[in-house]
Design a protein around this nucleic acid. Structure first.
Lengths: 217, 217
DNA sequence: TTAATAGTGTCTCTTAGACACTATTAT
DNA sequence: ATAATAGTGTCTAAGAGACACTATTAA
């Protein structure tokens, strides 16, 4: 009992775009407290393990999903005791999800959850929305190769409304962070689209910007 | 021994602008490991306490400094054991610092420290630099009333180089987040400057912006 | 009077954002 | 042929950034 309270726990808000909407994976909680409520996949830190590895391991064990880049969201003290709980969020491409244990819900308007996991989800969405504007995180919601329109729809899902399509294409091409694969989409019962992938250099370039309020010259 | 390893700890990177430079408060570490090295003020979470309150309490106990807004930086697992350590940063006006236990060092180029506290400091500086560009955090490094040139020098210290002075004044006034107190500075052996304070509404307005990479319309 | 710092305006260039039609494929 | 989606250009307005001189005070 005492040991449990002072252990560190990790949780993961896993997000994906499904049916044009940003959704999060939740699981049924098996024991008290909050037995039967929805919760984020997570568990307890092991001896000598880093927080990020613990979060990745728990995600894999509870959902079967591997190789997801996780970003730390926040840490909280458990309400009683000395324990700490650390939340992460991660992004997966929808195609990679087959039979994952759990159910998907609107990430922006989650159902009732155990603990404060609903708030954590909202925090994850807020963080993603902010970071999508000055980094390339959003690309992690897509497979390696994608069309600009697919990217556009991803941004629409993240932001909750679609950016102007022409301006979006113009901007993405102007940023020069995409390179054409030379391939086209097929089997889509409409005009095929050019496929692109994110350049290696693109990932860094965007993170370096981030100067726009009062910094000037 | 076992209990110590699984406790949660908090540390605070306290930053201030002194002599035109962004500096951080470090203290001599009294015991092993790393006895005698510089470290961030901090300590162990108490039962039932929130992380932020623990950080504020430790800061007060170790340095005498009160009423500092703290922002969470990151959480780490302690290298051995199940313990977690959570880092915060806080900003104080230099005038409020009288006899604080500890010594001040360049925040951007800290000396050798215990643990990874040097890295934490760099992280704090990076976070502050980023946030100063789209929030009003930087104002916490100044007293309630300040001149625009003082604000300008504060930004110069944060960023490591001065923004263009005229553009900075123009921008700050255009943002309409400052209100004149009606007072002037005095005793400065030069032309007095108008004093301003940050409007209440200003704090929120800036945080709401934050849309500039690929989000369009 | 001098040293020190406060206060002020214009121009250029880049970017955000509004806006609608044609092209190409599967069916 | 039709349904569906990909691809494309121009104009306006706002903001970033470069740039130098005058005003006011204490000493």
């Amino acid at each position: 009992m005492k040991r449990k309270q002072s252990a560190a726990a990790v949780e993961v808000a896993l997000l994906a775009v499904r049916a044009g909407r940003l959704e999060a994976l939740l699981q049924r909680r098996g024991r008290a407290p909050f037995k039967g409520r929805w919760e984020l996949p997570g568990g307890v830190l092991r001896r000598g393990e880093s927080l990020e590895r613990a979060a990745a391991r728990e995600l894999r064990q509870k959902t079967g999903i591997r190789r997801v880049t996780l970003e730390q969201l926040a840490a909280f003290a458990a309400p009683r005791g000395r324990g700490v709980s650390v939340a992460y969020y991660g992004l997966v491409e929808a195609p990679r999800l087959k039979e994952t244990a759990g159910a998907w819900f609107s990430a922006a308007r989650p159902p009732r959850t155990a603990f404060d996991h609903g708030r954590l989800l909202k925090l994850a969405v807020a963080r993603l929305r902010a970071r999508a504007n000055y980094t390339t995180v959003a690309f992690r919601l897509l497979p390696r190769a994608f069309t600009i329109d697919e990217l556009h729809r991803t941004y629409a899902a993240i932001m909750g409304r679609p950016p102007d399509r022409r301006n979006f294409r113009k901007k993405m091409l102007a940023l020069a962070i995409l390179e054409p694969t030379g391939q086209l989409t097929h089997g889509r019962r409409s005009r095929p689209g050019r496929l692109y992938r994110l350049k290696r250099s693109g990932i860094i370039r965007l993170q370096e910007r981030g100067v726009f309020m009062p910094y000037i010259a």
